[in-house]
Simulated assay, not measured.
Amino acid sequence: MNMKSQKFRKSAEFFGAICGGLLISLPAIPQAVAQESTPKINPCPRIFYEEPHNNQVVVPQGCPPNALTQRLAAQGLLPVPATSSQDQTKLGVGGEAPQPNVIPLRPVPGDQTQQPSPGKVSTDQPALLQPRQTPSATIALTNGTVNIKLVNDTAANVTFQVIGDTAPRSLQGKSDVTLQGLKVPVTVTFEREDHGQLIVTPQPSSEPGSLEVTFKEATNAAQGRSAMRIERNGSVFLN
Rank of each mutant, 00 (worst) to 15 (best):
K4M: 04
K4C: 10
F8N: 13
R9G: 04
K10S: 08
K10I: 10
F15C: 12
F15Y: 11
F15V: 11
G20F: 14
G21I: 12
L22H: 06
I24Y: 01
L26E: 05
A28K: 13
I29E: 03
Q31A: 12
V33Y: 07
P43D: 01
P45F: 02
Y49M: 07
E51N: 09
N66G: 10
L72D: 04
A73K: 13
A74D: 01
G76W: 00
L77W: 03
L78A: 03
G95Y: 04
E96H: 14
P100C: 03
P100S: 13
P107G: 14
P109I: 04
D111I: 15
D111E: 14
S117A: 08
K120C: 11
K120D: 02
Q130K: 15
P135F: 01
P135K: 01
T138D: 01
A140H: 06
A140M: 10
T142N: 00
N143H: 12
G144F: 11
I148M: 03
V151S: 02
T154Y: 08
A155R: 06
A156W: 03
A156G: 06
A156K: 03
N157M: 03
T159F: 02
I163P: 05
Q172M: 04
K174G: 03
K174P: 00
G181K: 15
L182P: 06
V184L: 08
T189K: 05
D194M: 01
G196S: 08
L211T: 07
L211K: 06
T214F: 04
F215M: 03
N220D: 12
A221R: 10
G224N: 08
A227E: 10
A227I: 13
M228V: 15
R229Q: 10
E231R: 02
E231V: 09
R232E: 13
N233R: 14
L238M: 02
